[in-house]
Amino acid sequence: MLTKFSITRSCALRKFTFLFLLLSGQILKAQSPAADGKSSFTAKLINIEAATTEVFRYNTTLHNGDAKSKVVELKADLPIGWMISFKADGSQVTSVAMDAGKTQDISIEINASATADPSKYKIPVKAVSGSDTLALNLEAVVKGSYGLTLTTPTGRLSEELTAGSHLDIQLVVKNTGTLPLKDIDLSSQLPSNWEASFEPSKISSLEPGKSQELKARLKVPDKTIAGDYAATFTANNPNGNAPAVFRIIVKTSLLSGWIGILVILLSVGLVYYLIRKYGRR
């Protein structure tokens, strides 16, 4: 015969079992997301602004809402000269395997062409699986870049001169960026007692893709020892600088050479005279 206590304990046990099964089902459901039939391809930010020298980085999420697994290929339509890479779990990929109901974070990195004009560019990105295509329209706003080079008309960066003389070196300053450059100064780093001047000494403005020639006059002191020296000319701007390192070969002047030979001959003659005069004593 069942007691009241036994009946109460039996009911409590059944309630506990029911609650346990219910909670277990909820946990399993949370751990294994079911396919909801709605696949998606989204991004936290679709519009990013950067210079051409910087990387446009987008954080996107791809969700497979289908009831079956599939392989999704990642594609993009880029302007000429641009590059793109897709990364999943830290590795670069061109496609990802998606289980049913799976969500995958994908990082997209875009490099603009160095010659891209400042503007807004639309970057259509697609996740393709069979006949299904998910589209994501990204925007890259190029704000331009600064670029500056200093070289010679021929590209040659070595010169020769004799001690005590001067040398005129033709230089070319070029704006290799996409934004104008203003107030470009010229400076030099030379061996001790050397001198340099520039004509013109400053460029007030230089448009993108344009270049300007100038002259550097280099003066070497009289008593400079023959040999190889380094002379650095630099174009400076608040947005950057461009050095050009020259190899300067200094030679002894012809007059100095003859004077040296004459001194040697006189020394030999003096020794010979002394030997002739005092050698017999």
Score class of each variant (00 low, 15 high):
residue 232 T to V: 09
residue 220 V to T: 03
residue 186 L to P: 06
residue 214 L to I: 11
residue 168 D to H: 04
residue 228 D to S: 12
residue 216 A to Q: 08
residue 225 I to W: 12
residue 167 L to W: 01
residue 228 D to E: 14
residue 163 A to W: 06
residue 230 A to E: 13
residue 171 L to Q: 07
residue 158 S to L: 00
residue 225 I to F: 12
residue 165 S to G: 03
residue 186 L to Y: 08
residue 173 V to T: 05
residue 221 P to E: 13
residue 171 L to I: 12
residue 180 P to F: 02
residue 215 K to D: 15
residue 187 S to F: 04
residue 216 A to I: 12
residue 229 Y to P: 00
residue 234 T to Y: 04
residue 181 L to C: 00
residue 187 S to K: 12
residue 218 L to T: 02
residue 187 S to Y: 05
residue 196 A to D: 07
residue 223 K to D: 15
residue 182 K to I: 07
residue 208 P to G: 01
residue 192 S to A: 14
residue 235 A to G: 03
residue 217 R to M: 10
residue 169 I to V: 07
residue 233 F to C: 09
residue 174 K to Q: 05
residue 160 E to K: 09
residue 192 S to R: 14
residue 196 A to Q: 04
residue 168 D to E: 10
residue 178 T to I: 02
residue 161 L to W: 01
residue 167 L to P: 01
residue 228 D to V: 11
residue 158 S to M: 04
residue 172 V to S: 08
residue 227 G to R: 06
residue 233 F to Q: 11
residue 170 Q to M: 13
residue 201 S to Y: 09
residue 211 S to P: 13
residue 163 A to C: 06
residue 156 R to T: 13
residue 223 K to L: 09
residue 231 A to R: 03
residue 201 S to F: 10
residue 234 T to H: 06
residue 164 G to R: 03
residue 177 G to F: 00
residue 172 V to F: 14
residue 215 K to F: 15
residue 215 K to Y: 15
residue 185 D to Y: 05
residue 191 P to W: 05
residue 181 L to V: 01
residue 206 L to D: 03
residue 217 R to F: 05
residue 169 I to E: 07
residue 176 T to F: 02
residue 173 V to P: 02
residue 181 L to E: 00
residue 182 K to T: 07
residue 191 P to V: 07
residue 169 I to K: 08
residue 176 T to W: 02
residue 172 V to Q: 14
residue 169 I to A: 10
residue 166 H to M: 05
residue 212 Q to S: 13
residue 155 G to L: 03
residue 208 P to Y: 00
residue 171 L to F: 06
residue 177 G to D: 07
residue 182 K to E: 05
residue 175 N to W: 00
residue 210 K to W: 08
residue 156 R to H: 15
residue 217 R to G: 06
residue 161 L to N: 00
residue 166 H to K: 06
residue 228 D to P: 05
residue 204 S to Y: 04
residue 228 D to Q: 13
residue 224 T to E: 03
residue 198 F to H: 04
residue 176 T to E: 07
residue 167 L to V: 01
residue 181 L to T: 01
residue 189 Q to E: 14
residue 203 I to E: 01
residue 166 H to S: 08
residue 195 E to A: 14
residue 204 S to T: 04
residue 224 T to D: 02
residue 213 E to K: 11
residue 209 G to I: 01
residue 163 A to G: 08
